[in-house]
Every structure is written in structure tokens, then in C-alpha cells.
Simulated assay, not measured.
Amino acid sequence: MLNELIHQAALWLDNTAASTSMHESFYVYNWVETTHVLTLTLSLGLLLVIDLRMLGLAFTNLPATRLAQRLQTPMFLGFAVMFITGMALFYAIPVRSSQSLWLRIKLLLLLAALINALVFHRHLRNAGPDWNNAVKAPLSLRRGAWMSIGCWVGVVICGRLIAYDWFDCSKNPAPLISAFVGCINGQEQF
């Protein structure tokens, strides 16, 4: 039922003039995709610097919270542009994208990364100021840094794999994959 709703919404989006023109425009689609990748590089690069600082692997001579505060604004700007361009990429090819195994896994990893970030910031507030100049952050923050790195590596890998059609509905994937991917046309639904 949820897959049917997603499919119907994707068909509706696909029939809009803006979606069609964006998909058919060689320059617009490529510029949006390039902007998405560049802002991903900016945001994740800055986040990696913060995570490595928490792990005691980089910039250990700088106070951790000051480093994070200074990198926060450009990182969040990059994430905002990355989110907007990601939505635009989905909008350009909604039916195929909505039935992509890799997109669905990527969305789950993004949700995990968001939850991890919220928990990380709570632990950061509760950690107190004593550790700020220490080489390594407290264990809870180091765990959050490792989770962050793991989630974002998965997001990047899945994002790259979206371009490949190994599990497209037209290839009649196994029933479990078909249900998770959201295949509708002639496929048994769970």
C-alpha cells in the first residue's frame, strides 16, 4: 500500500512539465548533480574534520568545541544546498528514483545519521568543558564520531550506486527486493 502511494506520487511528479524539462535538459541536470556532489564534498569534508578531532586523529592542538563551532556554518550551508539539489535530482527522475533500492537504503542511512547527530549534540552538551583540550573526546562522543563516519560513507556509496540498475523493477528482482524497492507493475506486493 505504501509502495503504491509512493509510485502514484512519483508518476504525478514525472508528468509535471518541470520534471520532464529538467530530466531532458543536458545542462540543468548536470549542473544540479555537480552542485550536489560539490556541496556533499564540502559538508562531509568539514564533518570528517570534526569527527577526526573527536577521535583524536587530527587537529588535537585545537579545542574541539571551538573547531566544531567554526566549521558549523559552512557545513550546514553545504548540507542545505546538498538537500535541495538532492530533492531536485529526485524530482527530475521520480519514478526510477522512487523504486531504487540504493535510494531507499540511502534514506535510511540519512535518518540514522540525523539521529546520530542529535544524540551526539546531546552528549556534547552533557560532556562538560573538562575534555575540550584533551587529545580524544569522551567515549560517547567518539562512538558518535565513528557512527557519523560509517553512516556518511554508506550514504555516499548508496548515492553513487543509484545510477546503476542492478535491482530495477524491470529486471524482476527477487520478491523480497521487489517489495523493498517498491515494484508495482505486475509484481506481487507485500
Rank of each mutant, 00 (worst) to 15 (best):
L44I: 10
F180E: 09
W102N: 15
S97V: 10
N15W: 00
L11D: 12
V81E: 09
N132C: 13
V181N: 14
A18C: 11
E24G: 10
L62S: 02
R160A: 11
A179Q: 14
V119C: 06
G128V: 02
F180Y: 13
C158R: 03
M82Y: 09
L101C: 08
T16R: 03
P175S: 12
R104D: 11
G150I: 10
L77D: 09
T20W: 02
N172S: 15
M54D: 07
I84H: 02
C183D: 11
F190H: 13
S98T: 11
I184T: 15
T39P: 13
S43H: 05
K171F: 02
A10V: 02
L89N: 08
V28L: 08
I50M: 13
K171W: 03
S19M: 02
A179V: 15
P173T: 12
A80P: 10
K106Q: 04
R53G: 02
D14N: 03
M75L: 14
A18K: 02
S98H: 13
A163F: 07
F180S: 12
V37Q: 13
L57F: 03
G186N: 13
G86Q: 00
G182F: 07
L111M: 05
S148T: 09
C158N: 01
L44Q: 00
R66A: 07
T65P: 01
T65N: 05
R66C: 00
W102M: 13
H36L: 08
F83E: 10
I50K: 01
A179T: 15
C169K: 08
T39G: 06
I93V: 13
Q99R: 10
S170M: 09
S98E: 08
T85P: 08
L62D: 01
A179S: 15
G154E: 05
V95C: 08
N30R: 11
S25R: 05
A9G: 06
L47D: 07
N132W: 14
L71W: 01
V153Y: 00
G86V: 01
Q187N: 15
L67S: 05
V95P: 14
L110Q: 07
N3P: 08
S100F: 08
Q189T: 14
S140R: 04
Q189M: 15
